[in-house]
């Protein structure tokens, strides 16, 4: 086929596809048809242009001289002189002072950027958990140890803070006999109801997967794995710290309560996390 013909056919196809596109739009729109017709319209145009450029344009090769990019030294020198026209006394000192003024002004003008966020303060060290706060499930219902099935896992919050991102805690029911942790930590797990911060200590993802058989918590983001029976120590993956354990007890009505906030910061690490803030 002669190139002229191909080009003509391609452009004709493009026109028809464009009209079809309008039709589809007017009749309510349909994503697949729109994409295919738009693609055909653009493709026809592209094929037409490509065949035109390959088959119909003179294929003459040209050659162009390349002037050297660098100018000769004398010209550069003269430009340098033009750049620094006068010989003011103490020019250097004045230029430095001007740069200082500009820099100071820039610094002063950058200060409003601090409005972008609060100072971290104690935010990273505290969560809404307080002594006596009842553990409630995502529906806000307080829990008794007897409500939990062995090897089940529930996301719990302090009462009044359902959905709190930094208080989210995994409450897991295990057999107390299986816990291999210091006595005082086992004491924080009445009837084997043990609570750990749900926020991964690596990059802050919710540690959402529980392998009940192995008693392992697994973070779906970077696969850090935590051993529930051994204080959530890391058994695999990039996390370096255990998930902080929530001190839990039971109040006189038999509901699970927190004995206080986590004893260390939850979530991803930061430089002064061991310093207790300030």
């Amino acid at each position: 086929m002669k190139p002229e013909r191909v080009v003509a056919v391609a452009f004709a196809v493009s026109i028809m596809a464009s009209m079809g596109l309008v039709g589809v739009y007017v009749s309510g729109g349909q994503a697949q048809a729109e994409g295919a017709l738009l693609g055909t319209a653009l493709g026809g145009l592209g094929v037409g242009l490509a065949v035109w450029s390959v088959g119909l344009l003179p294929s003459r090769t040209r050659s162009e001289e390349r002037e050297p990019l660098s100018s000769d030294d004398a010209l550069v020198d003269r430009a340098e002189d033009d750049l620094h026209p006068s010989d003011i006394t103490r020019r250097k000192a004045l230029v430095r002072l001007m740069a200082g003024a500009g820099g100071t002004l820039a610094g002063a003008l950058a200060i409003p950027a601090l409005s972008l966020g609060p100072r971290p303060g104690q935010d990273l060290f505290t969560t809404p958990w307080t002594a006596g706060a009842r553990l409630v499930d995502p529906e806000g219902a307080p829990l008794r140890p007897g409500d939990l099935v062995l090897d089940s896992v529930t996301t719990v919050y302090p009462e009044g803070h359902v959905g709190s991102p930094d208080a989210q805690t995994l409450l897991i029911k295990v057999d107390v006999q299986d816990l291999e942790m210091p006595e005082d930590r086992i004491a924080w797990a009445p009837d084997g109801c043990i609570g750990y911060s749900k926020i991964c200590t690596h990059a802050g993802c919710p540690v959402g997967l529980y392998r009940a058989k192995a008693h392992e918590l697994l973070c779906p983001c970077h696969q850090s794995t935590f051993d529930v029976l051994r204080g959530c120590s890391v058994t695999f993956g990039p996390a370096d710290r255990p998930l902080p354990q929530l001190p839990i007890s039971v109040d006189e009505e038999g509901f699970l309560i927190a004995l206080g906030d986590f004893t260390e910061p939850v979530g991803p690490g930061f430089w002064n996390m061991t310093g207790g803030g300030g």
Partner: peptide
């Protein structure tokens, strides 16, 4: 006209492929 035509063709074809992908 050579380079301009070629580039125009490439622009249209790039858009065409992306339109097919975006639709399908």
């Amino acid at each position: 006209p050579q380079q301009v035509m070629k580039s125009a063709a490439l622009l249209a074809l790039t858009a065409a492929v992306l339109a097919f992908m975006g639709g399908l």
